[in-house]
Amino acid sequence: MFTSVDDVAARLAETGYLASPAVATTVFLADRLGKPLLVEGPAGVGKTELAKAVAQVAGARLVRLQCYEGVDESRALYEWNHAKQLLRISAGRDETWDETRTDIFSEEFLLPRPLLTAIRGDDPKVLLIDETDKADVEVEGLLLEVLSDFQVTVPELGTVTATRRPFVVLTSNASRELSEALRRRCLFLHIGFPDEELERRIVRLKVPGLDEALARSVVRVVGALRAMDLRKLPSVAETIDWARTLIALGADTLDETVVRDSLGVLLKHQEDVLKATAKLDLDAL
């Protein structure tokens, strides 16, 4: 899919995703080694966006499995279409039992769910397994077969093996420790907060109306907030929101009043706001 690490960075940038060297390298390796990519990091640094960008670059279909507590085989893998099977049985009343039985367990009555969808067919696909840590431990076991051999076993049909391996991205917020077996099968990528220069480029790209000097100040203030000991550190998503807010407020430069009034966009806890206000000397005026 990609020829070099620089190629990854350049093509991701075309879709509007500015990748750090670490991100570009790992995506390149995931493609080369054909291994799933496990992405961890704080909320709002672009984990899900990465999968979307890769899908766009590769011209692939994005298949998404959103995990939540209680997601199970019939939601992740496949399900038999019971209603249709019943209709089929009642439609063919004169048939013998053998004919009916083989008939209702065929592809026609199979409802593929994301994991099966991703490994069937010949078109390129990107499989995004979002918030893997929210799913129960049993689902991880289910993923192991899919991620290591790219195959799914349906007892009535047999084993479906991928003819073309999808590019797999798993994301996690680390609210639960994923099992060692799952981690072992993946390349691990931790996306942290971007460095100052990269974040400035991201903000400028996402908020075109922002001028260079203001973008610089915005990123520096956010950087200072991240160095503080806060309950919830502002993420890239918050930086972009804040930049948009500043444009909406018509602010050309940052000053105490503007920052104080819009701090709520960046910080989501009252005590964080109080702490930041004190540290940035916003009360001075």
Partner: peptide
């Protein structure tokens, strides 16, 4: 093998991605 030895920082990220499991 895929990254080569020309860029040390790429090599660092590549090895980190394959060898490590947590930040």
């Amino acid at each position: 093998a895929a990254l080569g030895l020309t860029d040390r920082e790429l090599l660092r990220e590549g090895l980190a991605a394959t060898l490590l499991h947590s930040p």
